[in-house]
């Protein structure tokens, strides 16, 4: 995640911004309906900012870190995630010089759209298949985190295709380099999400979209 400034051609940056736009529009309208929970949503976004600030350098102007996607999806719901991701990514660019402004659209797409929806759909699918709550969360978090990185790999592969193997070869190359840091991070993040969610649920007093469904842990 976090494709840095200058790493994407302007046309790619614009295209990813256009791709994120409808999700953002939907997300903003969702935030209006969640107005009662805005302080808690803001706290969740602030927490994600802190979590994703723990970064490791990686390929082609990007970095690896716990995505916090699953946690954010549970706390805010997948529909609210694009807007919250936009805010978190903007602050990371302006407060920590991490990420970028022209690459904001691409980063919102991977962190705010691809990751949360993959996590949400996988969790629902795992629950329907009769997997227990905790294995379902672990599976959805780990694969959702990897989906975020797969999306980033695709974005980078489209921008920097391999001279001989094209986009597919470049995608595999970027994904392979990411996997060195991201496979362990995704595995740890899955267990981390379960522990943190348990603590939040046990602390009580929180009613946010998505969280109540997980309260049966």
């Amino acid at each position: 995640m976090h494709i840095s400034e200058g790493s994407l051609p302007l046309t790619h940056a614009a295209a990813w911004t256009c791709a994120s736009a409808p999700f953002l529009a939907h997300s903003i309208s969702k935030l209006k309906t969640l107005r009662e929970s805005r302080y808690l949503l803001a706290a969740s976004a602030g927490y994600l900012f802190t979590l994703t600030a723990l970064k490791l350098p990686s390929v082609a102007g990007s970095s690896s870190h716990p995505t916090g996607v699953a946690l954010g999806t549970v706390l805010a719901g997948p529909a609210a995630m694009p807007a919250l991701s936009l805010i978190v990514l903007l602050f990371q660019a302006l407060l920590t010089a991490h990420g970028g402004l022209t690459t904001l659209g691409a980063n919102v797409f991977s962190l705010g759209v691809a990751g949360p929806w993959a996590t949400w759909l996988l969790w629902r699918l795992a629950a329907r298949c009769g997997l227990g709550d905790q294995p379902a969360i672990i599976l959805a978090t780990a694969l959702g985190s990897l989906a975020t990185y797969a999306c980033t790999s695709l974005q980078l592969a489209l921008a920097h295709p391999d001279p001989s193997g094209g986009v597919t070869a470049a995608f595999l190359k970027f994904a392979a380099v990411f996997s060195v840091t991201q496979l362990p991070v995704a595995t740890l993040e899955a267990a981390f999400t379960v522990v943190v969610l348990r603590m939040v649920v046990n602390a009580g007093g929180v009613r946010i979209a998505g969280l109540e469904a997980w309260a049966q842990l």
């Binding site: 602030g46 919250l84 805010i87 903007l90 602050f91």
Partner: peptide
């Protein structure tokens, strides 16, 4: 929301 996040960070 951005201002609240900024305040809470």
């Amino acid at each position: 929301m951005a201002f609240l996040v900024y305040r809470l960070i």
